[in-house]
């Protein structure tokens, strides 16, 4: 039976997903070996399904929507992969944590740096509230595998997925596999 495969995009720049698309023709091989059941770049499904085997999660957890989705992903996925530095360290989105809280971040972005006409975004139910801090995935939910890099190169992603698809744990060691940045 084919593995049920998903990718999820939280607080990241989408660069990790772009790197995933850089797998080029290997994507065809991947598509033959898995069912893509949820992905911003490879599926139109809007709700995260049940019984997912593997999910690559890009980005940290920065707002209420991210939080809801990661809890759902964890509950419905066998192998959750922290995909890229933002998911693993909070990385660039986490740079706002030094301002200590959502309110100072919004004030900084929408008022202090605006040219006079700024206003704070307020659209309940439409624009998700920022969390006080951006967190790496594993500070919120158990994570099964870590795939570092900003972004992880296509070669690194492939070297990670190939053993995983065979049911073996990927060997995460050496600069080619785990160097940050």
């Amino acid at each position: 039976m084919k593995l049920r495969f998903a990718t999820v995009w939280l607080a990241g720049c989408s660069g990790c997903h772009m790197s995933f698309l850089d797998l080029d023709e290997w994507l065809i091989e991947l598509a033959q070996r898995v069912d893509v059941v949820f992905s911003p770049v490879a599926s139109d499904i809007k709700t995260y399904p049940e019984d997912v085997d593997v999910c690559l999660v890009e980005g940290g957890v920065a707002n209420a929507d991210n939080l809801e989705l990661i809890l759902q992903v964890r509950a419905r996925t066998r192998l959750l992969v922290s995909f890229g530095d933002c998911a693993i360290t909070a990385n660039v989105p986490g740079m706002r944590n030094r301002l200590e809280g959502a309110e100072p971040v919004l004030r900084r972005g929408y008022l202090e740096l605006a040219d006079g006409s700024g206003q704070l975004p307020h659209a309940p139910g439409l624009v998700p509230d920022l969390l006080e801090r951006v967190l790496p995935l594993h500070e919120l939910v158990p994570v099964d595998h870590y795939l570092p890099g900003c972004p992880p190169s296509a070669a690194r992603i492939r070297a990670f997925l190939e053993p995983l698809l065979r049911g073996e744990p990927p060997l995460m060691e050496g600069a080619a596999m785990i160097r940050f940045g």
Partner: peptide
């Protein structure tokens, strides 16, 4: 062999 930190980030 650090692929993630087991300690929380302080920022």
């Amino acid at each position: 062999g650090m692929d993630h930190s087991r300690l929380p980030y302080r920022h």
